[in-house]
Structure formats: structure tokens, C-alpha cells
């Protein structure tokens, strides 16, 4: 599982997001990818054939970190977390 670095780092008061219906802690400025990894999420989405996928490039190029945020597919590594976001992980892509 991922861990936040705390030495020499000060974050603001935690905020809260829902990951698959469960409340989880997040900090202002974090990307959704960081919040999910820190919460132990590994499978961000599933391909059409059902294969699990998770972040690869962490810079917006690969589209492997997609999750549903408040119902829309987004790249988790390029989305800054907001209080109260509803994040769905592991959803499967449907045929185009």
C-alpha cells in the first residue's frame, strides 16, 4: 500500500471523499490517484474484457488511471481532489 510522506511536509486539514460508498480521508492539493493509492485501491478500472488496470504514467498520457468521479470517467492522476467527491473504482469500460 502507498504511504503519505509526513517528514518535512505540512498538509492542510483533511477533507473527505467517498470511495465506492465509503468515506475516506484526503488532503487539499492531492490528486484523486494519490488519495486512492493511499486508501489501498489497486484496480482503478477494468478494460472491456475485464482486465484490471491502475496508474502507469502519472502525468496524464496513458489513461490507465481512469475512475468514475461523480459519474464521469476522469483520469485520477490529473484530477485534484475535492471535498465530497464520489469516486467509483474498478468500473468496467463498455463497448464503444
Amino acid at each position: 500500500m502507498a504511504a503519505r510522506i509526513t517528514r518535512q511536509v505540512r498538509r492542510k486539514q483533511p477533507i473527505s471523499v467517498n470511495i465506492d460508498g465509503e468515506a475516506s480521508r484526503a488532503y487539499a492539493g492531492e490528486t484523486v490517484a494519490s488519495v486512492l493509492l493511499a486508501a489501498g485501491v489497486t484496480v482503478f478500472y477494468r478494460t472491456r474484457s475485464g482486465q484490471p488496470r491502475g496508474p502507469y504514467c502519472n502525468m496524464g498520457a496513458c489513461f490507465e488511471c481512469q475512475v468514475k468521479i461523480d459519474g464521469d470517467w476522469q483520469r485520477a492522476c490529473m484530477t485534484v481532489v475535492e471535498d465530497g467527491m464520489n469516486i467509483t473504482t474498478g468500473a468496467r469500460k463498455s463497448a464503444p
Partner: peptide, 18 residues
């Protein structure tokens, strides 16, 4: 993951991603 992606988590997000 891309090594650069791992590095960006550490440098920017201050997260050890594993």
C-alpha cells in the same frame, strides 16, 4: 508503473506509491 510516474508521486504528491 513508469519510473517517472513513481518519481512524480514522490516529488510532487509527497506519496510513496507502494
Amino acid at each position: 508503473m513508469a519510473a517517472g510516474g513513481i518519481q512524480a508521486f514522490v516529488k510532487s504528491q509527497q506519496l510513496i506509491p507502494g
